[in-house]
Nucleic acid binder design. Structure first.
Length: 272
DNA sequence: TAACAGGGACGTA
DNA sequence: TACGTCCCTGTT
């Protein structure tokens, strides 16, 4: 078990930010996250985080995964103080960090996310993990499922995942899996690309549009300059940034601010 | 009961 | 560029 005081790190906010669909709030101050084939419980209260793992695992896996070495405070400090909307957004969602998640997992997750709500996205992902993911057992004897590899979907018919509630998105996931297994999509190559090139490559995947590509870039490749625009963000931009969001000022970490805005739109005070 | 919207994208025109 | 359609579920 590892105990740490960490600024700008709030698992409740990260849960609600919708970047990770396999993190759950178990009870007050208690969170559980499944990453690939790994599993972690975290207790978090009053700025103190307790990670239920060895110090080794913490430094090798989780510190990286939660992006804990990065000082998000520096981003927040760069916000234009005259921009009260963004200042308030960062005040509310300042505990969000951009997780370093698995590329394949993000491709599938955000293919499923389209025209869908978070509760149902979670269920869809639980379903495909249960059906196609490898079953694991923790040291304490709890069962969980790893996220399915592309190979697990590649042999399916395009509509087979409708049984997991994916609806018309089933064929997107199956086709993407086939393309990965066939080598038409090279995940390792995409991981080495810069943002613009990676996005271009992701857009070739059937079912991936501009918004989903940006989500994959931000959450699966940690390109912090990716700025996904969905309906919520679009509304916020129309309301508060009629002349456009000042991307130049925030060059290189637009995606972090996108998360603050998104979170603020969903959970902030409604000041209509 | 029916209509609608929910972190879009595709195909067609 | 615009618009209908895709599937499912919770909400009104």
């Amino acid at each position: 078990m590892v105990k740490k005081q960490i600024e700008n790190f709030d698992l409740e906010q990260i849960c609600n930010s919708g970047q990770c669909f396999r993190m759950k709030k178990l009870a007050e101050n208690k969170y559980r996250i499944i990453v690939g084939a790994r599993y972690l419980d975290v207790y978090q209260k009053d700025g103190e985080s307790i990670f239920y793992c060895s110090l080794e695992e913490f430094t090798e896996v989780w510190e990286e995964y939660f992006d804990l070495k990065r000082a998000y405070k520096l981003y927040i400090e760069k916000i234009n103080p005259k921009d009260t909307y963004l200042v308030n957004a960062a005040k509310l969602g300042g505990g969000i960090r951009i997780l370093k998640q698995d590329l394949w997992e993000m491709i599938v997750s955000f293919l499923i996310s389209q025209q869908n709500n978070i509760v149902r996205i979670r269920r869809c992902i639980e379903n495909i993990c249960r059906e196609y993911g490898e079953e694991k057992i923790t040291a304490s004897g709890e069962h969980y499922y790893a996220f399915p590899k592309a190979e697990a979907f590649a042999c399916l018919e395009e509509d087979d995942l409708k049984a997991c509630n994916l609806g018309y998105r089933s064929k997107y996931v199956v086709r993407a899996a086939k393309a990965v297994v066939a080598g038409e999509i090279d995940l390792q190559a995409i991981e080495k690309m810069k943002y613009a090139k990676a996005k271009e490559e992701l857009l070739k995947i059937f079912g991936v549009g501009v918004k989903v590509a940006d989500c994959i870039c931000l959450f699966g490749l940690h390109h912090l300059e990716a700025f996904p625009v969905d309906t919520h963000i679009n509304q916020a931009l129309e309301k508060h940034y009629k002349r456009g969001f000042p991307k130049r000022r925030y060059k290189g970490f637009e995606g972090v601010l996108q998360q603050y805005i998104f979170y603020y739109e969903l959970f902030g005070e409604k000041t209509e």
